[in-house]
Design a protein around this nucleic acid. Structure first.
Lengths: 220, 220
DNA sequence: TTATTGTTTATTGTATACAAAATACAATGA
DNA sequence: TCATTGTATTTTGTATACAATAAACAATAA
C-alpha cells in the first residue's frame, strides 16, 4: 500500500467539546455561569445535536454540570477543582508508571523521547515542550498495558493548564530531572519507586500551577 | 414543606445506557460483536437520538468502542478487561479512603452503616448486601471531599459483577472484617493504612470474581 | 396587597428528515 | 476468471421539527 496517512474526519461533537473545554479552562466563562445550548449552537453555526453531545462529554469529564430541562452550568476552574483534578491524575499516572515498571519490556521509545528532547537547546518553545511532555507521558500510558487507564488519562490531559509555567528554563530542567529519574525507576522495574516518584511529579506540577495562579491573583 | 420526595424523570439516554451496560456486563452481547444503533433504538421503541447519547456515554466508560460512520463494538468483559477495570478502581477507591482518613471529621454515618449491617442475620440477601456495600463505599467517597473522584467511581460501579460471589456467608463475614478494618484506619486518620487496605480490599474482590469466572469456565 | 392560577416565552428532550459515508453486490471489461 | 467500477442498500452524522418542561409575568380572587 502507498504510504498515505488516512485523513480522518472528526465528528463535530468532538471538535466542539475541545473548543468548549479550552474556553472553560482559559476562563472565558465565569464559574457557575449558565451556558445555553442553543446559544452555543448558533455561535458555532451548527445544529444543537452535536453541541448537546459535546455538553454530555464535558459533563462526564467534570467541566460542566447538566441539569434536566435546564441550562448547563460551567464548573469553575478554581483551586478546589485543580486539587481534585490533580489528585486523581496523580494517582492514575502513578499507577501507569507502576505498571510500566512491572510489565514493560521495550523501553527504547521512552529513552529516545527523552534523549531527543535533551539534545535541544533550552529553553524550548512552549509548543516544543508541550509536545515532548505529552509524548513522554503517553509513552508511559502505553507501557502500562491498561487501555482504559490510557483513555481516562487522555481525557484528563489539559495542556493549557501548565501554559504559563513552562517557558522558564529552570522549570524545564527540573522536569527533565524528574523524567530521567522516572525512566530509571521504570527500566529497573522498581514499581514502587516509579509510583511514588510519578505521584510526586504530578503533585509538583499542581503546586506550580497553584503558585502561578496565586501570583496572578496578587497582581490583579 | 410537606415531606414529598421529588419524583424525578430521568432522560431516556440514561435509562438506556444503564440497560445496555447491564446487558453487556451480563454477557448478552458477544465480545467484539457489532451493535447497531438503529436496531437498539427499535428494540427499545425510542428514537436514535437518546440511544446515540447512551452509546457515547458507554464509550466514555469503556464498555463500547465507537467508530466513525460504523457500528459500535462491544468490549468483551473478559479477564483482561476486569483486571484493567479493577486496577483503576482500586487505586481510586484507595485515594478516596486516604482522603477520608486525612480530611474526614464526622464518621458517625460510616459507623452507623456498618453497625446496622452487622445487626442483621447472615447471610443477607443479595439485594441487602449490595445495598449495604454500596452505601459503605459511597460514604467513603463522600468523606473524600473530591466530587470528581466520586463521579468517576460512581460511573465505574457495576454491582452485578459481584452478583454470583456474595451470597456465601463466609464471603460476607470476610467483607465485614475488611470494612471494619478500613473504618478503623479512617477514624484513626491513618491515611497510608487506609490507602493500602482499600487497595487490597478491591483487588481481593477482583480475585474473587476471577475465581468465580474460572470455575464457570471449567463447568462449561 | 398577596397568594394563587393562567398564559406566554425560552429552553431542553425526543423524534424525524435529510445528507454523507461505508458496505455489498452486480455489471463490465480485460 | 478476476479485478475494477458503478449502483443500491444500510448505517451513521447532522439538521430540523415537534413535544414537554421551566421560568417569567400577567391576571384574578381573597
Amino acid at each position: 500500500m502507498i504510504p498515505f496517512t488516512k485523513l480522518e474526519a472528526t465528528p463535530l461533537s468532538d471538535r466542539i467539546s475541545t473548543l468548549l473545554k479550552d474556553a472553560i479552562i482559559e476562563g472565558q466563562f465565569k464559574a457557575g455561569e449558565e451556558i445555553v445550548l442553543t446559544a452555543i449552537a448558533e455561535r458555532y453555526g451548527v445544529s444543537r445535536t452535536p453541541v448537546r453531545e459535546a455538553f454530555q462529554s464535558l459533563a462526564k469529564d467534570g467541566f460542566l454540570t447538566l441539569r434536566m430541562n435546564k441550562s448547563a452550568i460551567v464548573v469553575g476552574i478554581d483551586e478546589h477543582f485543580l486539587r481534585n483534578h490533580y489528585e486523581i491524575r496523580s494517582v492514575l499516572e502513578a499507577q501507569a508508571a507502576y505498571n510500566a515498571a512491572a510489565n514493560g519490556k521495550d523501553f527504547s521509545r521512552l529513552q529516545r523521547i527523552q534523549d531527543d528532547a535533551e539534545k535541544m537547546r533550552l529553553p524550548m518553545s512552549l509548543d516544543e515542550f508541550r509536545s515532548y511532555n505529552m509524548k513522554f507521558h503517553r509513552c508511559i500510558w502505553d507501557l502500562s498495558g491498561n487501555e482504559r487507564l490510557q483513555q481516562l488519562l487522555s481525557d484528563m490531559w489539559v495542556s493549557s493548564y501548565s501554559s504559563s509555567a513552562l517557558p522558564e528554563i529552570h522549570r524545564q530542567t527540573r522536569t527533565f530531572n524528574s523524567h530521567r529519574r522516572l525512566i530509571n525507576d521504570i527500566i529497573n522495574h522498581d514499581c514502587d519507586a516509579a509510583f511514588e516518584h510519578m505521584k510526586r511529579h504530578i503533585i509538583g506540577s499542581l503546586n506550580n500551577i497553584l503558585k502561578i495562579l496565586d501570583e496572578g491573583k496578587k497582581e490583579a
